[in-house]
Amino acid sequence: MITYEECLELSDLTADEVDAIAEHEHVTSMIAIALGHYMITHDGEQKIKSIIMDDIDKAEREKNYQHAEMLRKVLKHFIATHPEHHAKKAA
C-alpha cells in the first residue's frame, strides 16, 4: 500500500499546498493530492494559485489573520517553485 507521504512526494506539492486545495475543495488530503497533481501535470498551476488566493480571502473575511498569513507564505512558495505558468504566459 502506498502511504500519504509517498503520494505527497510524487505530487510535486507541499503538505501546505495540499491542505489549501483540500480546504478549498472540501475534500480529504489524499483526494487533494490527486487533484493537485493532476492540475500540476495539466497546466493547472494558475488554478492552484487561484485556490490558495481564495483561501486567503476567506481567512481574512473570517478575521483569521494567522491562517491568512500562513496561506500567503504557501502562495509565495508555490509561485517560486512552480514558475512554469509564468514562463508559458511570457512565451
Rank of each mutant, 00 (worst) to 15 (best):
I56S: 03
C7M: 15
P83H: 09
I33N: 06
V74D: 02
H42F: 05
T28H: 03
H77Q: 08
L35V: 13
I33L: 08
A20L: 10
T3P: 00
E23R: 13
Y38E: 12
H24Y: 11
A80V: 01
K89E: 13
H85I: 09
E45S: 05
T3F: 07
I56G: 03
H77I: 04
P83E: 14
E9F: 09
A59K: 05
H82A: 11
A32Y: 09
G44E: 06
H86D: 14
E62R: 11
D55L: 04
Y4Q: 02
E17K: 03
T3D: 13
I48R: 00
F78T: 08
S50W: 02
K49A: 03
Q46D: 14
E62I: 07
K47L: 01
L10E: 15
Q66I: 09
E84S: 14
V27K: 08
D57E: 13
Y65R: 03
A87G: 08
E17T: 14
L13G: 12
A22Y: 14
D12L: 12
I2H: 13
A20D: 08
C7D: 15
G44T: 01
E23C: 00
S11Q: 10
E62Q: 09
D16T: 10
E5V: 14
I51L: 10
L71V: 00
S11P: 12
E84M: 11
V74Q: 05
K89P: 01
L71Y: 06
